[in-house]
């Protein structure tokens, strides 16, 4: 199926990605080409084939409930674009948590 400019704009919104009009236009064409190229995949995948999410069949990889050292607070906050009161500062939030 072909993606429209609006489809791509919606995806960009979902991905929190600001795109310029030029970027949008170019992506629409490129994504179509790529999606056509990958179409063979959906045809080969029949119902009886089980999907693989992990290449190797490891299970039950767990650790003991033991407390280990956290990072020094200064190191944590040193990376931040903005800090206030020992916390990461962000501009005002419009939406609400899911």
């Amino acid at each position: 199926m072909a993606l429209s400019r609006d489809d791509v704009a919606k995806l960009a919104d979902l991905a929190r990605l600001e795109l310029t009009e030029t970027e949008l236009e170019r992506l629409v064409g490129q994504l179509d080409l790529i999606l056509t190229a990958v179409d063979s995949v959906s045809q080969a995948a029949t119902a009886e084939v089980a999907p693989t999410s992990h290449a190797l069949a490891l299970v039950n990889v767990m650790r003991d409930d033991v407390v280990t050292a956290s990072l020094p607070r200064e190191a944590v906050l040193a990376m931040a674009p903005a800090v206030e009161d020992g916390r990461f500062r962000v501009p005002r939030i419009l939406g609400e948590s899911a």
Binding site: E84, D85, G86, R87, F88, R89, V90, P91, R92, I93
Partner: peptide
């Protein structure tokens, strides 16, 4: 109405 928000992880 908040001006900004602060995060503690």
């Amino acid at each position: 109405g908040a001006d900004h928000s602060l995060l503690d992880y």
